[in-house]
C-alpha cells in the first residue's frame, strides 16, 4: 500500500473542500470496499478523507410518507429499521442478502451505492483492465466471465455492478441526494450508474468530490414486493442474477403496475422497463410473465461463460412474479413478502 495522509471531515462542507482540487484524494466511509482496494493496489490516493462520522446517520419519514436515509446509515441498521421492514421489505431483503453480518455493520448506504465491480481482472492490478486503466484492454472478454454482464455491456468492459441494495432502490424509484461544488443535486438511482460504453472507468455520473448525503424513497408503492438473489452458494456470495419486483393488481385482478429491476446482469442496476410495459394491464399468469421476461432479455448479448444467465434471469423473473401474483390474490393492503 502506498503511503497516504489521513484527515477526518468535520462536516459535509469540510469534506467537499478537502476533495476540491485534490484529484489524488478519496472519501472513506465504512471502508469495506475502499480499504480492500488500497490493499490490492488498484487505487493509490495521497489523501484519505474519513466521512464515516459525519452526521448523516438518520432514517426519517418524509412529509409525503417517503423515507430519507442518511448516507452513513449502516446496511445492517437500514435492513432492521422498522419502517423499512414494514413498508419496503424488498429493500430489507436485498440488504440482508448482501455480504455478511459483520460487513453490513460497517458498510454504509453511500458506500454500498458506490462500491466497485468484483470483476476479478479489475481487482488484479497485474492484468489489463479498461475500468482500472483506460486503454489497456478488457481481460474478461477472453477470460472468466461467470460474473459478467449480459445486458448493456460494451467491447471495452463487461463488468457488473455488485450491489444488491442498489437493485432494490432502482425498483423503488429512489433518488440519491448529492452535494456538489455547485450545490445539491438529485439523481434517480437508475441514472446514477452508467453503462460502460467507451468510458468504463466512470462507474457513475458523479464528479470527483461529489458527496452522497442521502437516499430518498418515495411513499411505498401498492401491491406486494420481494427480492430474490441467485448465487453460487446459499449465503455470503455476490449475485449471479437477482430480481427486485413489485406487482400491483387492480380490482379485476389484472396488473395495474409492475416494477422490476435486475442485479448481476449489467454495469448498473438494470430497471426492466420492457418487461414492465408488457405486464401493464396484462393478466398475471405464466404466459404474460414469460412474455415480459423474454421481452427484457431479447437484447441480451451473453458470452459462452455467462450464457447460463439468460435462462437463469428468465426463470427468476417468472418465478418471482408468479410468487407475488399468487400471494396478491389472497389479501389486499400492506406490502409483505415471505
Amino acid at each position: 500500500m502506498r503511503p497516504f495522509d489521513y484527515q477526518r471531515a468535520a462536516d459535509t462542507d469540510d469534506a467537499l473542500i478537502a476533495l476540491a482540487d485534490r484529484p489524488d484524494a478519496v472519501y472513506l466511509a465504512g471502508g469495506t470496499n475502499l480499504v480492500d482496494h488500497l490493499k490490492l493496489g488498484i487505487i493509490a490516493p495521497n489523501l484519505v478523507v474519513d466521512i464515516s462520522r459525519l452526521d448523516l446517520e438518520q432514517v426519517s419519514e418524509l412529509d409525503d410518507h417517503g423515507l430519507r436515509i442518511g448516507a452513513m446509515v449502516r446496511n445492517s441498521d437500514l435492513a432492521a429499521h422498522p419502517l423499512v421492514r414494514a413498508n419496503y421489505p424488498m429493500l430489507s431483503r436485498a440488504l440482508l442478502s448482501g455480504a455478511s453480518g459483520q460487513l453490513r455493520n460497517a458498510a454504509t448506504t453511500g458506500g454500498n451505492l458506490l462500491q466497485r465491480t468484483r470483476c476479478v481482472y479489475f481487482q488484479d492490478a497485474s492484468t489489463p483492465c479498461n475500468k482500472r486503466e483506460p486503454g489497456t484492454g478488457c481481460s474478461a472478454l477472453e477470460g472468466f466471465t461467470r460474473n459478467h454482464a449480459i445486458l448493456g455491456a460494451s467491447s471495452s468492459c463487461i463488468a457488473t455492478h455488485p450491489s444488491d441494495m442498489a437493485v432494490a432502490m432502482a425498483a423503488l424509484d429512489a433518488e440519491v441526494i448529492v452535494l456538489t461544488e455547485n450545490g445539491e443535486r438529485r439523481i434517480p438511482v437508475v441514472d446514477l450508474h452508467r453503462l460502460p460504453g467507451e468510458e468504463p472507468n466512470r462507474d457513475t455520473v458523479l464528479n470527483h468530490g461529489d458527496l452522497i448525503v442521502a437516499v430518498e424513497l418515495p411513499a411505498p408503492g401498492r401491491g406486494r414486493s420481494t427480492y430474490r438473489k441467485i448465487r453460487d452458494r446459499a449465503s455470503y456470495a455476490f449475485a449471479l442474477v437477482s430480481v427486485a419486483a413489485r406487482l400491483d393488481l387492480d380490482e379485476a385482478g389484472r396488473i395495474r403496475e409492475a416494477a422490476i429491476a435486475l442485479g448481476g446482469v449489467a454495469h448498473k442496476p438494470w430497471r426492466a422497463t420492457r418487461a414492465e410495459e408488457v405486464l401493464q394491464g396484462a393478466e398475471p399468469n405464466r404466459e404474460s410473465f414469460t412474455r415480459a421476461a423474454e421481452a427484457e432479455l431479447e437484447s441480451a448479448q451473453p458470452l459462452p461463460g455467462n450464457a447460463f444467465k439468460v435462462p437463469m434471469a428468465r426463470g427468476a423473473i417468472i418465478s418471482v412474479l408468479t410468487e407475488l401474483a399468487g400471494r396478491s390474490g389472497s389479501s389486499e393492503g400492506a406490502d409483505d413478502d415471505g
Binding site: 489521513y6 472513506l28 480499504v35 480492500d36 484519505v48 474519513d50 459483520q102 455493520n105
Partner: peptide, 20 residues
C-alpha cells in the same frame, strides 16, 4: 472479527485511525 463498540466487524477492513 472483533466487536467495535459492541458491534461485530471485520478488523482487517477497518483503518485503525477511523476508529479513534
Amino acid at each position: 472479527t472483533v466487536l467495535i463498540d459492541g458491534r461485530r466487524q471485520n478488523s482487517c477492513l477497518a483503518l485503525a485511525l477511523s476508529h479513534d
